[in-house]
Simulated scan of single mutants.
Amino acid sequence: MTCMGASPTRAYPQAMKRALALSLVTGQFLLLAALAFIPHGTLWFTNVGVIVAAISLGLVGAVLVVLGVIKLGSALTASPIPREKAQLVTTGVYGLMRSPIYAGLMTGGVALVLVGASAWHVVAWVALVGLLSMKTRWEERMLLAEHPDYRSYGARVGRFVPGIGRLAAGE
């Protein structure tokens, strides 16, 4: 069965692409929920210093997410599949890093690891970083295909941290 007006060869890859995108988004939210709800552990003491560090990192993460969401505007989507005809955003927080929303989620995840103090928190955070890294690389391949300027932008701006993870000329 195909979508009306779509050829069988085009509908199947699009459906697979959407299914992969949905699974990545679902995994991302499940890992964030796990970080928030895994029972507290005893790998380290959660003293005042740890709590202050966690609050600070949580705030930095939240600010990155909010600034990224605001700057994307109508181009925002939870899916790694870019919106059709959306403009490439390279200013504001996107002038410092290409994926500030994902960087903010990772930073906020570290805050939850610090407070959680369990090996399961560390495992969930490492899985989150892996998933977001994979999601970002896939998204960037689509952005490279959609926006000719993305390669030069990626060569100037780091992926999750300013200056780190820039695209190579032939990447």
Rank of each mutant, 00 (worst) to 15 (best):
G165S: 08
T2N: 15
T42D: 15
S79T: 13
G95S: 14
G49M: 14
A86E: 05
T26H: 01
S79L: 07
P162K: 00
P148L: 11
L24D: 05
V93D: 02
L30D: 08
T46D: 10
V48H: 09
L132S: 02
S118F: 04
G73K: 07
L22R: 09
T9W: 14
W44V: 03
V122C: 01
L96K: 08
E140L: 07
R83A: 09
M134E: 01
W44H: 07
A78R: 09
T91E: 15
Y102T: 03
I164T: 04
P148I: 07
W125A: 06
I81P: 07
V63W: 10
G108C: 03
V157P: 02
S152W: 11
R141F: 00
M106D: 03
L64I: 08
T136M: 04
Y153D: 05
V66M: 13
Q14W: 14
L132K: 00
Y102H: 07
L128S: 05
G49W: 15
K71L: 10
G92D: 10
G27Q: 03
L143E: 13
S99M: 06
R156A: 12
M142L: 15
K85E: 14
V129P: 02
M134F: 09
D149W: 04
I101G: 01
S7K: 05
I55F: 06
V66Y: 12
C3I: 11
M97D: 06
E139Q: 14
A21C: 10
R151L: 13
A33D: 05
R166M: 04
V69M: 06
G154N: 04
H121A: 12
